[in-house]
Simulated assay, not measured.
Amino acid sequence: MQATKLIVLTGPSGVGKGTLVRSLLQRHPDLQLSVSATTRAPRPGEVHGQDYWFLARAEFKAAIAAGELLEWAEYAGNYYGTPRQMVSEQFAAGKSVLLEIELAGARQVRAQYDAEIVSIFLLPPSLDELERRLRDRGKDSETAIAKRLARAREEVAAQHEFDWQIINDDLETALQQLETAIYGATSCATADPMSPSA
């Protein structure tokens, strides 16, 4: 990577951001993944400081008040945010930082770092496929799935705010497009899989 960059990756819940990011980091250990803070409870197997910084609501609100978060948003009843210090330290060390964050947070970061950002929106092949993936995860109630799908429709409408739109249909293809977006070469145009009636 020729210059220090902030890579902002967002997309609907269930679109496969985590899987893509893990594969990307395996191929490119030079990238630094920012660990987000959250007020939600850890899921089985998640490690504090590795998967997330798990904070009490009072701690999170104190961090907001102190200006310690680069971005933050409330999602599904919990707060999520990016600690500012880690990003600043990695930037100062000449490292590029990858943020896997929500749409609201991505907008906040772009407002602050517009010139140095590569912004990427990850799309499912269709909303039907996204619903199938959410159900297959087995993590959410019917009510939660319905809320995530409603939010996904709103998020997909914002895809053109981003430099790149990548459809996560085939993992290897999506990963190659992600590498192109971050490391340069030719642009990879994608067709919009979402029509207003989707």
Rank of each mutant, 00 (worst) to 15 (best):
I101C: 11
Y113M: 14
E161H: 13
L130S: 01
I167E: 06
I117T: 14
L122K: 07
E142W: 01
E161D: 12
D163W: 05
E116L: 07
D114M: 11
R148I: 00
V97D: 08
R107M: 12
S119E: 11
V118D: 07
A158C: 13
D114E: 15
E154L: 15
H160T: 10
Y113P: 06
A152R: 09
R151M: 03
G105Q: 10
E102V: 13
L98I: 15
R153E: 02
E155I: 04
I166F: 12
K147L: 11
V109D: 06
K139I: 09
T143V: 09
S141K: 02
D136P: 04
I120R: 07
E161G: 14
A157K: 10
L130M: 04
A144K: 05
A152T: 07
R137Y: 05
E161I: 10
L99H: 09
E154M: 13
R135Y: 05
D128T: 08
I167Q: 04
V109E: 09
A115L: 13
Y113F: 10
R135V: 04
D163A: 15
V118A: 13
Q165W: 08
E142I: 03
I167C: 06
Q112Y: 05
F162G: 06
D169W: 06
E102F: 14
F162N: 04
E161Q: 15
E161N: 15
V109C: 14
L127Q: 04
S119K: 11
I166C: 02
V97N: 09
A150S: 14
R137S: 05
Y113K: 13
P124F: 00
A104N: 06
F121W: 06
D140R: 06
E131Y: 00
R153C: 02
E100Q: 10
L127S: 00
V109H: 07
D128L: 08
R132A: 04
D114W: 08
E102P: 11
I117W: 00
L99W: 02
R153V: 10
L130I: 02
L149C: 08
S119W: 01
R133S: 04
I120Y: 08
L130F: 02
A111P: 11
I145D: 03
